[in-house]
Every structure is written in C-alpha cells, then in structure tokens.
Amino acid sequence: MKPPAHNQPAGNTPLLSVRNLRIEFPTRRGTLVAIDDVSFDIARGEVLGMVGESGAGKSLTGAAIIGLLEPPGRIAAGEVLLDGEPIHTLPAERMRKIRGRRISMIFQDPLTSLNPLYTVGRQITETILTHRDIGEAAARKRAIELLAEVGIPAPDQRVDHYPHQFSGGMRQRVVIALALCAEPELIIADEPTTALDVSVQAQIIDLLKRLCRDHHTAVMLVTHDMGVIAEAADRVAVMYAGRLAEIGPVRAVVQQPQHPYTRGLMGSIPVLGADVHRLVQIDGAMPRLNAIPPGCAFNPRCTEAFARCRS
C-alpha cells in the first residue's frame, strides 16, 4: 500500500510536505491509530484533491497540518514541513501566527462557520488586524474589496450585515473571503461544497479555483465527490482507513487506477449515458480503527489480494 515514490512534480522544496504522518488517539482500551504512515507533498499553487469514504482520515490529516487536532488526538510520528520547516513541533503561539496567515482552512458547513452575533465585516477585519499591521479603516476597506472579489453584490452594504442575512452559497463565499484575507500560501478546504445546493457547488468550486490561481495559493481539497476532484484538482490522493491508497495526477488515477480500492471507488461512480445496469460495489465496509488488518488495510475486501498484501 505504498504510494508511488514520484508523486511530486519536479521542482524545488514543496510548499507543504507531510512525511510518514501517524496520528493516534489514546483511549482506555488501547491506542487507536487513525492515520498511519501518510506522506504527500503539495507544490506552490497546486490543488491536491483528497478523496476517501467518511472516516478515512481526510479531515483529520487537514486538522493535523493546521495544528488543530482535538485532544486526545496527537501526532505520534512523522512530520509536517511548511517550506521545508517543521511546523508540527512549533509552540502554540507560533503555530497560531501561521494559521490564517500562511495556512487557512475552510469548513464544510457555511451555515455554522460564521459567528451569528457579529457582522461579516467585523469578522473579516478582526482576522486582517490579527495578521496585518494596518489601521481599522484600511482593514474595513480591504474587507469590502475581499467581499467584492468573492462575488458578493453590493459589498459596501453587505459588509455590515450579519451571517443570517446571507444564503448558504453567499455565506460560503464569505468564508472563502475570510480564509483568503491574510493571503495564505495554502488553503485546506474541508468538503467546502458538501453542504451546498448542487447548482451552487459548481460556482463555489469555480470561485475557489479562480482565486487560488490569481493568488497562486495551493489548495488541499478534501472531498468525497470525484466530480469536484476531476473539475478542480491537479493531483489526487485516495485515502482508505487512515492510509494513503494511491496518489497521482487526476487523469492517471481516474483512468488507470493502480490500487484495487481506487478501481472500486471509480467503478462505483454512475456515468451518464453509460449502458451499465449495476454499479460496482465493494463488498464489506471499511475496518474500524481498532480492527485494522495487518498488511494492506484493504486486503479482506480485495478481490485481487495475494500473500504479500496480508503481511
């Protein structure tokens, strides 16, 4: 279950480098290994898609990178390098200064991501003032510019509105503006479109793509929607039971998946107009964290497993 060694486009130091990451949750009944030996790189300006079922560890990996693992979860081994510098060992206060400034995060549900008691303008200026040494008035001007940039009409009026006065799609735009407001180098987008209407999803993905291209921001796009990956990502990483099953350019992974799990995943996507009566189904379910089989975590469900997969 080792990813191919050459998953990094040629070039100098990658923006983000995750090396042999292992995340554990100590519990009364022993330690659960939620993420095991996960390694990948993200280059500057690159969009890396991260797919997998619920519970595969996609969001957890994102939380570990930005330093917001909820205790008792902890990084037990491996490292997270930002521009070649380890950030997983930084003291809390220095990590806080990286959050929002160099690495930002977008959450799944725009309806709950904004504080209901403050205007969106206040939340944006507060974030700008945390990271930039500029005055209130300049920050407010910048907030209005940002709202305009993410496509909110009449931003000079909307800046004084409260979150409940925006629709879901508009709120996700506000969230994107908040994530972008200190010009980070990397955005971790944790299922940014899952909670939205299908018609709005495409708009939000387009917006995210355009903004990141304009600002040369890298994105780690966590999702379980292959359509979103195909549309937006440069490369894709497939996660299964806390491990990386496969990583590579989107086209290659979609058209010639190497790992049987990825093949199953691709086969289970309905294709319009295809003359198929039944979709491919992978028998069984993802193992629980306390019962991950030895060898490749997928081997009990795999139709092609051989001896080496089981040890």
């Binding site: 917001l68 990286i98 930002s104 991501s113 904004l114 209901p116 974030t127 200190a182």
Partner: peptide, 26 residues
C-alpha cells in the same frame, strides 16, 4: 465545540479573542 469557534481558531485569532470575543457572547 461549534464550527465558528473552530473556524476562528483556524484563522489564527488569539485565544483571548476566541474565548472572550466569540465564545462568551454566544
């Protein structure tokens, strides 16, 4: 535990701003 507190942390706001500015008022 709410998302907007997680998001406030993810934006790098100080603990004081998160706890007393955002959490306490709610």
């Amino acid at each position: 535990r709410t998302d907007y507190i997680k998001f406030a942390r993810a934006r790098g706001l100080s603990d004081r701003a998160v706890h007393f500015g955002h959490a306490l008022k709610n």
